[in-house]
């Protein structure tokens, strides 16, 4: 399956780091968004996007609200979503899981962790 990633983060630096990491992992098809609302616009405009990597703390629409919006739309309900965030407290992780995030990475991340989580999600989706 060819993957097209949507990387959502309000920090330009973080977006570039995630995109560079994806390039290093061999993924080339990547689009970006600066907040949850922009991400939803891109998702509705491009149905070839099939993997979302999102931050939590963002203006306009947070990562958590983005996941809820993705899950509530029939077209994107089964979209694989990986959260990459600084928020590492138990309550936050449980809240994200309740919103049905597929996996969770805390910043600062390593490329190994990113690869591992993407692979785990893809394996779950495939099964």
């Amino acid at each position: 399956m060819s993957l097209k990633f949507l990387v959502v983060d309000d920090s330009v630096t973080m977006r570039r780091i995630v995109v560079n990491s994806l390039h290093n992992l061999g993924y080339e098809d990547i689009v970006e968004a600066g907040d949850g609302r922009e991400a939803l616009i891109k998702l509705s405009a491009d149905d070839t996007i099939n993997f979302v990597i999102t931050d939590w703390n963002m203006p306009v629409l947070s990562g958590l609200e983005l996941i809820k919006a993705i899950r509530s739309d029939d077209k994107t309900a089964s979209m694989p979503v990986l959260m990459v965030t600084t928020r590492g407290v138990k309550e936050d992780i449980i809240e994200a899981l309740k919103a049905r995030v597929n996996n969770y990475v805390v910043k600062p991340f390593t490329p190994q962790i990113l690869r591992e989580k993407i692979d785990q999600i893809l394996a779950t989706v495939a099964s």
Binding site: D10, W56, N57, M58, P59, S62, T85, T86, R87, G88, V89, K90, I93, I94, L97, N103, Y104, V105, V106, K107, P108, F109, I113
Partner: peptide, 22 residues
Amino acid sequence: TFDPNARYDKSDQNQQNVDEII
């Protein structure tokens, strides 16, 4: 928007904690 508990910690411990919770 911000996380008041954000910290630059490169140890694996944070991710391990997350994985255990998940």
